[in-house]
Every structure is written in structure tokens, then in C-alpha cells.
């Protein structure tokens, strides 16, 4: 029951973030969206992911967005009625709606063949993960399987990811740092 309630709240958050004209409010609603998503992750027993989502998605992303808004504009440009009724603007809006509905229909069609929610026989749960679950303690001696897979079995992935963060930091420095006057 609570799952369905949380899912309804999250859908409402997404819709509000879409229609908000004030970008600061939209950013805060995005933070709420992330935080409720973290709650849903906890309900689905993904505690590590929920922790990360709460600290990264709800915390840092909101802070960065607000920092960016402080250097750009807070409000979306308010188009006048004439501009909004222009055929080209209307056409692009309808086209994007059609595109979204078609994509959604294709995805729903694909979902019909998916295994049921929580099915232990699903292919996702059959392939590599039983080995991780059974061997983790013997191989590494630690209890948190997520950390074991992250740091030990899939250490290369995490190394690549650290490199991605490092690259992002470097890119931001290159884009925004002002040169000192010589």
C-alpha cells in the first residue's frame, strides 16, 4: 500500500517539476523527487543505492542547480500569447507529444514480456548474482555484498567511474575557472 502511495507522490512530483515556471521551485521539486525515490529504494531493500541517491541526487545536484541558477536566470522566459499560438511553436509541441506517446507505447509493449515483479526465476536473478551471493564471504571476508562486488569483483568498473568523476571535475575547472590577470 505504502509503495503505491510513494509511487503516486513521485509521479506528482515529476509532473509539477515539468510545469513549474519558476526554475528554483522546479529544482527544489527535483530534490523532493530524488528524496522520495531514495525512500522507494529503501522499500526495495537497495540500502546502498538509497543512501547514494539521498546524498548525491537530493543533496549535491540541488546545490549545484541552485548555484547555476544564481549565475543565470531564475525564471523561465514568459512567452506572450501571440508567440505561444504561433504555428511553429504549436507544431513542435504536438510533435514532441506524439513522439513521447509513441515511445511510451513501444516501451509498454516491451514490458508485457518482462518477468513479473519479484520473480526469483527471472533471468536477472539467475545468471551471475547467485555466485556473488554464495561466494562473497569466502572470497573477500566482508559482509556487505554490494561493497564486495563494487570494490573487488568489479574493481575495474569503479576505477573507470572514479576516472569519470575526475574528468568531470577537470572539465568544470577548464570551463569556468577564470585566469588570473598577469
Amino acid at each position: 500500500m505504502i509503495d503505491i502511495l510513494l509511487l503516486l507522490i513521485i509521479v506528482a512530483c515529476a509532473i509539477f517539476a515539468l510545469f513549474m515556471k519558476d526554475l528554483l521551485s522546479a529544482t527544489i521539486i527535483l530534490g523532493v523527487y530524488s528524496f522520495i525515490m531514495a525512500t522507494i529504494f529503501t522499500r526495495l531493500n537497495a540500502v546502498d543505492v538509497a543512501f547514494t541517491e539521498a546524498s548525491v541526487g537530493a543533496g549535491i545536484t540541488s546545490v549545484l542547480m541552485i548555484a547555476a541558477l544564481s549565475r543565470t536566470k531564475r525564471y523561465e522566459y514568459h512567452y506572450t500569447k501571440g508567440q505561444r499560438k504561433k504555428p511553429s511553436a504549436l507544431f513542435s509541441k504536438i510533435m514532441s507529444l506524439v513522439l513521447v506517446i509513441v515511445t511510451g507505447a513501444v516501451l509498454v509493449y516491451g514490458t508485457l514480456d518482462m518477468p513479473e515483479f519479484g520473480d526469483p526465476e527471472a533471468p536477472t536473478n539467475q545468471h551471475v548474482s547467485p555466485r556473488y551471493i554464495e561466494e562473497t564471504h569466502h572470497d573477500t571476508g566482508i559482509n556487505n555484498m554490494v561493497t564486495a562486488v563494487l570494490a573487488s569483483y568489479r574493481g575495474y568498473d569503479t576505477l573507470g567511474e572514479t576516472t569519470v568523476i575526475f574528468t568531470a571535475g577537470t572539465a568544470v575547472i577548464l570551463l569556468l575557472r577564470r585566469k588570473k590577470k598577469v
Binding site: D48, F51, S55, V56, V63, I142, N144, T147
Partner: peptide
């Protein structure tokens, strides 16, 4: 990170957030 939820990413982000 080895005993419960947590690890380098989460801890790093919290450390960054304290300074922010």
C-alpha cells in the same frame, strides 16, 4: 562500507557537503 550500507562515494559526498 564493509559492514553496512555506505562506502567511498557516500562518505565522500557527505564530506564534500559539510564543506559546502
Amino acid at each position: 562500507g564493509d559492514l553496512g550500507p555506505g562506502g567511498g562515494f557516500q562518505g565522500g559526498v557527505i564530506l564534500g557537503a559539510s564543506i559546502i
